[in-house]
């Protein structure tokens, strides 16, 4: 496959995995948790490096997953002790991020594990970083990781679709019906962490936040049905990553930045033209009513 092909495929996989997870994030009113986890992942990666003294994918993934869960658990705990959600998130992620930065400057030293890279990512280099697979041939390792994660996310969402639906829309009812609401919460947080790490390596933290929240929020304006929302959100994710790539070539600029920016363009279109909850549809609906 050509260079552009790999970039587009990687971007599309980020779009799908983030788009799917994002829908649940939005509906569970936990959008900013994505922002928090995408930053605390840094601490996980640094810690994993300090423990294993290598930068390979496996230990990074585990470290980041643990950091994500730690974030979720701490936020939950602060919330239950009476702190506003947003304040709890703010305390937890900035503190964990700071510890990560301090660790980098004191213990990791000059090893090329820089904050800059972690935040911005570098998707342009992915196609060159390949591993050999039996039967298939060389595949960029980041793309492979993303593919696995996308499949896991899709499976977990499909297999427990009913559970997700009820714990998301009516947690109280779900609890009274005997659904493991808290367990689902942590399973979901693990999903978010894993998606974040996989996408993170490719496109950086900020882009992950854009991909998790914006396509899902746009989809939320188009439909009320959960299944449609999942489909649309993944579609928007793919569309914005491809659009971002085109824009990046056109302006000769950072790919991940353009991809994040493109999610905004799709949101803008949805904001005005979405048939259900877009501004124009709303106006039309109002005038009809009169």
């Amino acid at each position: 496959m050509s260079y552009a092909g790999w970039i587009l495929l990687t971007g599309a996989l980020v779009g799908i995995s983030c788009g799917l997870t994002g829908v649940l994030l939005i509906l569970r009113k936990m959008a900013m948790m994505a922002d928090a986890i995408s930053h605390t992942v840094l601490l996980g990666i640094v810690a994993a490096y300090l423990v294993s003294s290598s930068l390979d994918g496996g230990s990074m993934l585990i470290g980041a997953m643990l950091a994500g869960l730690l974030t979720a658990w701490l936020v939950q705990w602060f919330e239950s002790s009476g702190i506003n959600t947003d304040a709890a998130i703010g305390v937890v992620f900035t503190t964990l991020f700071s510890i990560g930065v301090i660790l980098i400057s004191t213990s990791v030293g000059n090893v090329h594990l820089d904050v800059n890279h972690a935040l911005m990512g570098e998707i342009s280099f992915i196609p060159w970083n390949v591993i050999e697979l039996p039967l298939i041939g060389p595949v960029p390792s980041a793309t492979l990781l993303l593919l696995i994660v996308t499949i896991i996310v899709a499976l977990v969402i499909l297999l427990f679709f009913k559970e997700w639906k009820i714990t998301t829309f009516d947690p109280a009812l779900a609890a009274s019906l005997g659904f493991p609401v808290l367990l689902m919460h942590y399973v979901f947080m693990t999903l978010v962490s894993v998606t974040t790490v996989a996408a993170f390596d490719a496109v950086g933290a900020i882009m992950v936040v854009a991909m998790l929240i914006t396509p899902a929020a746009s989809a939320n304006l188009w439909t009320d049905r959960l299944s449609h929302m999942f489909l649309l959100s993944a579609l928007f994710g793919v569309a914005s990553s491809s659009m971002g790539y085109v824009v990046a070539i056109w302006l000769n600029t950072s790919i991940s930045g353009s991809m994040a920016f493109s999610t905004g363009l799709i949101f803008l279109i949805s904001y005005f033209f979405a048939p259900k909850h877009g501004q124009i549809a709303k106006r039309v609906y109002k005038t009809n009513e009169i």
């Binding site: 009113k29 994505a34 922002d35 854009a210 929020a217 353009s258 999610t263 905004g264 949101f267």
Partner: peptide, 15 residues
């Protein structure tokens, strides 16, 4: 919170 996430990431991406 979703609105903040959108604006935050899209603006920063533009930046």
């Amino acid at each position: 919170d979703a609105a903040m996430g959108i604006i935050l990431s899209v603006f920063f991406g533009g930046g």
